[in-house]
Design a protein around this nucleic acid. Structure first.
Lengths: 113, 113
DNA sequence: CGAGAATATTCCTGTCAAGGCATATTCTTG
DNA sequence: CAAGAATATGCCTTGACAGGAATATTCTCG
């Protein structure tokens, strides 16, 4: 989980993942589409692979990189545990707290002395 | 999105979020439960707040920190776009590639919700 | 075999973030 | 107002990491 977050926290890597959503790509291909230099693409792909986010399928001297479902599904599952947060039951509480906060912000500076 | 990933990529921060899932907590409380020193907790909470993952409700000299739903829901929504990856349509392709790489034959579980 | 394509690795450098510790800040209360 | 509680900030040091450029590696093919 942490590894997944760390991998996706890097903007270029995030974009690579987004690109791979449309299907497997070659390193060079990725570089061209995202305007990244080849070595950096390779490095990012390495990180993504070590995080299990990507798989490689060699084809001669080329490598086809493709997204792996598992980590993303795991993330999705993890988030399910937080669903209560935005589901019905807590909605009111959220609003309440929002109100309290915006109200106190106004004159919390000078109460009384 | 990137900000959310970056915030959650830090182990202590991840643990804080997990803890806050059970409800709002005071800074000191968090520190004790997670064995973190107060200044680090405050710093982490600051990052979490800047990422929008957390809200503060002041109470005298204490601060109640609580989880915010929005970023997590956004993450969840983002992942929905990747659902095809592990849903029916691509299952076969996944299996194919899995076979090429490992020879596991004991994988027979399925997740339904 | 040698050239060239596609990708990976290495080395270097600058930046940024995290922990530790001391200190500042903000409130409450006697 | 002083003392103390709860939290935030500042400074410092160290380690991780990203980009750049050069180079190594692995294949294919004429």
């Amino acid at each position: 989980m942490i590894a997944t977050f760390a991998a996706l926290a890097e903007p270029s890597r995030f974009r690579i993942v987004e690109l791979l959503r449309s299907g497997p790509r070659l390193v060079t291909d990725i570089g061209e589409r995202l305007h990244l230099r080849q070595p950096q693409v390779s490095k990012h792909l390495r990180v993504l692979k070590e995080a299990g986010l990507v798989d490689v399928e060699p084809d001669a001297q080329r490598r086809l990189y493709e997204l792996r479902a598992e980590p993303l599904r795991a993330l999705h599952d993890w988030l399910e545990r937080y669903r209560d947060l935005w589901d019905a039951r807590f909605a009111e509480l959220d609003e309440l707290l929002e109100e309290l906060k915006t109200k106190e912000r106004k004159d919390g500076r000078r109460k009384r002395r």
